[in-house]
């Protein structure tokens, strides 16, 4: 087993992954994340060495298919219940900082 090489994921790549996940990391945290992510990638590289050309891909650990529900409407949450999960509420709506349209 080849150990995860520190240089297999650049700090820029790690920064991009963090940005996509909306994570604001300090330099030290980013370096730690880069190191861990590089190790994860190392595990996948190890898996890549196995010949899977004759194996069907598995998308889901369960074998079940066609888990479907009938089209019946039921009532969900009361608005007060839903809105009690946040303090940012106005006129029955959740509020967020202004978005571009």
């Amino acid at each position: 087993m080849k150990d995860a090489n520190r240089n297999e994921l650049t700090i820029e790549e790690a920064g991009r992954v963090a940005a996509l996940a909306r994570l604001k990391l300090s330099d030290a945290e980013l370096e730690a994340a880069r190191f861990e992510l590089a190790r994860v990638l190392g595990h996948f590289r190890q898996l890549e060495t196995v010949d899977t050309s004759s194996v069907e891909p598995v998308f889901n650990p369960q074998d079940s298919v066609n888990k479907l529900r009938e089209d019946t409407a039921i009532e969900g949450l009361e608005r007060e219940q839903l809105m009690s999960l946040t303090e940012y509420v106005k006129d029955g709506c959740l509020t967020v900082p202004r978005t571009v349209d």
Binding site: R69, D71, T72, A73, I74, E75, G76, L77, R79, L82, M83, D91, G92, C93, L94
Partner: peptide, 20 residues
């Protein structure tokens, strides 16, 4: 009658956040 992945009703023009 209901949403794609849950039983909430599909209706238009309801009070906000009441069909969730």
């Amino acid at each position: 009658a209901s949403k794609i992945f849950c039983g909430c009703p599909v209706t238009y023009g309801q009070e906000p956040n009441t069909k969730c």
